[in-house]
C-alpha cells in the first residue's frame, strides 16, 4: 500500500501500513541528544554497549549505517575493554559477557575487528566456563543460558570456537539440554520455566556449536508458533500479552529451525507496524507505548527476518547482518538463501 493521497506531509504517512524508515533513522541517530532531559537515559547508562549495538544494527537493517560516526564509536567501544579482556557496559562500569558480545558485534559490524586483541577477549570468555558446561556472566558467578549464547557467539565470531575441544562442546550441549522443558522450550537454568528469549539463546548456541540435532523441531516449532496471539503479536510465554521484542526471540528461533512459516507473518508484520511511533519514530513494545531502541531494533529484525520492506538481511543466529558475517567467512548453514 502506498500513501500517495497525502504524500507531502511526512507526519501523515499511515504507519499501520508503512514502515517509517526515515523517522526510525532519525530516532536512532538522535538517541544521544536526549540525554540532557531524559532520566531514563541516565539509569540505563550501564546498558550503553548493548544500546549501541541495538542502534547500530537497526541502522544497518535500514541501510543507513553511514549515519553514525564510525571512529567515535570504535574508540568508545575500545575504551570499555578491561585489562582481563572483557568489556563493560560503559566506560566506568564493570566487564560482563553481555557487553563483551555486544562490543565484538559492534566492531564486526563496523569492520574493525582487527583493532581488537581477540586472544585476550577469548581468554576472558573461556575463563567463565564451568565444569558442567554452563557459563558465568562475569566473575561473580551468575549462571544463565544467555551467557552460554554470549560465550559461544563471541568465540565463533572471532573464529575461535576451536578453542573449545570436543569434550567442552559436549558439556555445553549437555547443559543446554538440561535447560529444556516439558514444552520443548528452554529456561535460564535447569528447572526454570521456558521463555522465548531463553529459547532463542539456546537454539542460537546449539546452532553455533552445530548441535541442532538435539532439538525436536516440530515440538519446539509448535510451542513457538503458539506464541502468536489473535492480534498478530507474539508473547514470550503462554497466557502472557504480546510484545514487539518477541518478534526477534520467537521469529529468530523459528527461522533457525526452519519453521518461520508456522506463524502468520503478515499478521505479525501488521502488529509491529502498529507499534511504530508516528511522531518521533522508533518502535514501542505495544501499540501506543513509548518507543525505545531495544524494541526498535527487535521490530526491525522482525521485518528483516520475514523479508518485508526490502530491509537488509539479519542473521537469526548471530543477530548481525548476513553480509557482514559472510565477509568474515562465517558459515550460516541455517540460511536457505545461501
Amino acid at each position: 500500500m502506498s500513501d500517495n493521497s497525502n504524500s507531502n506531509n511526512n507526519n501523515s504517512i499511515d504507519h499501520t501500513k508503512n514502515v517509517l524508515v526515515e523517522k526510525h533513522i532519525s530516532y536512532v541517530v538522535n538517541l544521544d541528544n536526549k540525554k540532557e532531559e531524559d532520566f531514563e537515559y541516565w539509569v540505563t547508562e550501564h546498558l550503553r554497549m548493548n544500546g549501541m549495538y541495538w542502534g547500530l544494527t537497526s541502522l544497518y537493517i535500514l541501510k543507513a549505517l553511514d549515519k553514525m560516526d564510525r571512529d567515535v564509536i570504535i574508540n568508545w567501544v575500545l575504551s570499555c575493554q578491561k585489562s582481563n579482556g572483557g568489556f563493560s557496559g560503559n566506560v566506568s562500569h564493570d566487564e560482563h559477557l553481555l557487553s563483551t558480545l555486544s562490543a565484538v558485534q559492534i566492531l564486526m559490524q563496523l569492520d574493525a575487528l582487527d583493532r581488537l586483541d581477540q586472544d585476550l577477549v577469548a581468554k576472558y570468555v573461556l575463563s567463565l566456563q564451568q565444569e558442567d558446561g554452563s557459563f558465568f556472566g562475569d566473575k561473580w558467578g551468575e549462571v544463565d543460558t544467555r551467557f552460554t549464547y554470549c560465550a559461544v557467539s563471541c568465540l565463533s565470531l572471532m573464529g575461535k570456537l576451536d578453542l573449545l575441544d570436543n569434550n567442552r562442546i559436549e558439556k555445553i550441549a549437555d547443559f543446554i539440554n538440561r535447560c529444556k522443558n516439558f514444552d520443548a522450550g528452554y529456561g535460564c537454568i535447569p528447572g526454570a520455566e521456558s521463555h522465548a528469549g531463553q529459547t532463542f539463546t539456546c537454539v542460537g548456541a546449539l546452532a553455533i556449536i552445530n548441535r541442532l540435532d538435539l532439538i525436536d523441531r516440530d515440538q519446539l516449532g509448535w510451542w513457538l508458533c503458539e506464541r502468536q496471539l489473535p492480534n498478530g503479536g507474539l508473547n514470550g510465554r503462554p497466557e502472557k500479552t504480546s510484545d514487539v521484542c518477541y518478534s526477534w526471540w520467537v521469529v529468530s528461533a523459528l527461522s533457525v529451525i526452519d519453521r518461520l512459516h508456522w506463524i502468520d507473518n503478515e499478521k505479525l508484520r501488521n502488529y509491529i507496524l502498529k507499534c511504530q511511533d508516528n511522531e518521533t519514530g522508533g518502535i514501542a513494545d505495544k501499540p501506543g507505548n513509548v518507543p525505545d531502541v531495544f524494541h526498535t531494533f527487535f521490530g526491525l529484525c522482525g521485518f528483516s527476518l520475514m523479508s518485508y520492506f526490502d530491509m537488509e538481511e539479519i542473521d537469526p543466529t548471530y543477530a548481525l547482518g548476513t553480509k557482514t558475517l559472510l565477509k568474515y567467512n562465517i558459515k550460516l548453514p541455517w540460511n536457505k538463501k545461501l
Binding site: 508458533c225 502468536q228 489473535p230 498478530g232 519453521r259 502468520d264 499478521k267
Partner: peptide, 10 residues
Amino acid sequence: DRERINYYLS
C-alpha cells in the same frame, strides 16, 4: 486457527 495453518498443513 488460521494463523497456524501451515503448521496444520505440515
